[in-house]
Write a protein that binds this DNA or RNA. Sequence first.
DNA 1: CTCGACAAGTGGACGAGATCGACCAGACGA
DNA 2: TCGTCTGGTCGATCTCGTCCACTTGTCGAG
Lengths: 153, 153
Amino acid sequence: MDEIDQTIVNLLRTDGRTSYAELARRVGLTAPSVQDRVTKLEKSGIITGYTALIDAEAIGLGITALIGIIPDNAADHHDICERLRAIPQIESCYFLAGVECYQLKVRVPKMGDLERLIHRVGAIPGVAQTRTTITLSTKWEDRPQPVPFELAD
Amino acid sequence: MDEIDQTIVNLLRTDGRTSYAELARRVGLTAPSVQDRVTKLEKSGIITGYTALIDAEAIGLGITALIGIIPDNAADHHDICERLRAIPQIESCYFLAGVECYQLKVRVPKMGDLERLIHRVGAIPGVAQTRTTITLSTKWEDRPQPVPFELAD
DNA sequence: CTCGACAAGTGGACGAGATCGACCAGACGA
DNA sequence: TCGTCTGGTCGATCTCGTCCACTTGTCGAG
């Protein structure tokens, strides 16, 4: 992971469909060597994939909410995690240091869907309590910050 | 936005670098017409961009935290928002219904960076209090849920 | 019913990009 | 000094992206 790799990663975060030829021009190499570097970045797990960014509202997911989970003492975290993973509406799941030991980011089309979702999460064994906060607006999301300085490979 | 558009969106969310030719094969159209559809999806704001997914730890952003902001009564939200936007470490910013009216997701290399960041956010005029939670692990993040049913265009 | 307009696809042509193998240069250790 | 390894270039070839002309189907107006 040298400076050129960082530039490539930054370019691909800005536009994930940039062609190898274009990347090559930007970093001053040829297309095959850039392709080689990108392949290595993918294999080593630094680049984990590519995705199109979608306006959630435009595809009918107009409601975003954050759900905090307070577990009970007997909670089997591995089990909770698997059950959460099975719920497609949960887009992100963080394990936190605090009383609310999980936070979920969920997206649903309608309020009714959110209500059902909360009940479903609350019914998972080991979940003592949930606390839901509706997001009124998403100011921004998943903004890529440039890859920083010195990195171990 | 018909069924074919939905398939295209789902395919591009799964792999944002899928070629038009490949998309065309998957949906049973020719490449030019798929390209035409994708262009329209981009212009209409449904697809807002493409990005490479990066393992944050691998690029030196080993620490993720959630910061809640409690504003004071005199808070100028537009100003707060702009000042938050100027901080690159804030990857996401949600405006919430609740006492904590913003939640930030931030990523930094080291604890010291997080401390500085918290001070910087706390110093913004209109911010009465902040509450930071460290994430111990990210179970998953930004998992695309398939585009659902009936959609207005 | 016919006509024209429009939206959405198709097919072909051509330039650009992706990809592969062969080759090259510098770094490094035996 | 000599292999060997890494990371690069170059050129050939195949695929892809993109433009344009043409076709088809739908629909409302006359």
